[in-house]
């Protein structure tokens, strides 16, 4: 098997201090992205557990593959879930969900939970899209912008470069700072043309780290341009897979002159903000409109 340079860890995580047996409402959120899928469980509107996987060939399978191991890991029975909310690119194709909510609204709510009421701007850099969202103190979206047409500024763009240069994607952030002189951004926006430009840089004697730095800088510039359309207000938070790449995030911060905040609880993974928001929507819906548990009676995933 060829080495896959885009791989990241896929694992379940839970808050050991919480007990699902004493929970009133258990809600699940599932975010089916184009590249990764996440499942989150909330106990009475509090974050409890999460799982991240690579999205499979179709949404129904990915949704099941994200949720099922998490239920097994936490010992929660499928029929005990009060509300399941789906979100993300594949949200319309999750057969066992009770409701679908847009990823924009879910990100707003999930990020608000992670950061708190002072959060105003969210940048979500996903595998196949990039979103900029303004929220109010309750996490309600007041302004948003999405770009899912063009691979520039998305995780897929970064994966393409990782594959081209044969550098594991998780190393790109650190390596992009192991350079002697500041990097000029790659000038082509289009990923296809940026690839040729990156190859030409390698041939002209630039080190891999310099080329990575140039691409990270180009991506940061691109995303900054996108953010400019809606403006950036503090607190500013970055979610999605690229939030783990400091080569991009630190350069965005430099462009904006604003530091991005971290989740209040360091154990919360910004990549799960969408699924968390979905689970929180599920909690509110279960509280207001009643549990959907009965519809799952006797069933398993």
């Amino acid at each position: 098997m060829t080495k896959e340079y885009w791989r990241w860890d896929e694992k379940c995580w839970k808050d050991e201090s919480m007990d699902p047996k004493s929970a009133g409402i258990i809600s699940a959120g599932i975010d089916i992205g184009s590249v990764s899928s996440e499942a989150v469980l909330c106990l009475d509107g509090k974050f409890y557990a999460s799982n991240t996987i690579r999205t499979g060939s179709n949404s129904p399978t990915s949704a099941k593959d994200a949720l099922k191991p998490l239920l097994e890991y936490t010992g929660i029975a499928y029929e005990n879930l009060d509300y399941i909310v789906g979100t993300g690119y594949g949200r319309v194709n999750i057969p066992f969900q009770d409701k679908a909510v847009t990823e924009i609204a879910c990100h707003g709510r999930g990020a608000n939970y992670m950061v708190g009421p002072s959060l105003r701007t969210i940048l979500d850099m996903g595998g196949q899209d990039c979103k900029a969202i303004h929220v109010d103190e309750k996490g309600k979206v007041t302004n948003f912008l999405m770009n899912d047409k063009c691979a520039a500024g998305t995780g897929r763009g970064m994966e393409t470069i990782a594959d081209l240069l044969k550098v594991p994607i998780t190393e790109i952030g650190d390596r992009s700072f192991q350079i002697d002189t500041p990097a000029e951004p790659i000038s082509n926006v289009c990923v296809v043309f940026a690839k040729s430009e990156a190859m030409a840089m390698v041939k002209s004697g630039k080190t891999l780290n310099e080329v990575l730095a140039s691409y990270c800088k180009a991506m940061a510039d691109r995303v900054t341009q996108l953010l400019d359309r809606i403006g950036v207000e503090k607190e500013f938070f970055i979610t999605g897979g690229i939030s783990k790449n400091r080569g991009v995030t630190e350069r965005i911060e430099e462009n904006l002159g604003i530091k991005a905040v971290k989740p209040k609880d360091a154990r919360l993974d910004p990549q799960t903000a969408g699924a968390l928001g979905a689970a929180l929507f599920g909690f509110v819906l279960a509280s207001k409109k009643g549990s959907k548990k009965a519809s799952r009676k006797g069933q398993t995933l």
């Binding site: 047409k149 063009c150 691979a151 897929r156 289009c190 990923v191 296809v192």
Partner: peptide, 16 residues
């Protein structure tokens, strides 16, 4: 897909 990079994945899934 309206992007060459995304269209490549679409082609791959058509092959699949």
């Amino acid at each position: 897909a309206q992007c060459a990079v995304f269209a490549e994945s679409e082609v791959v899934s058509l092959i699949a």
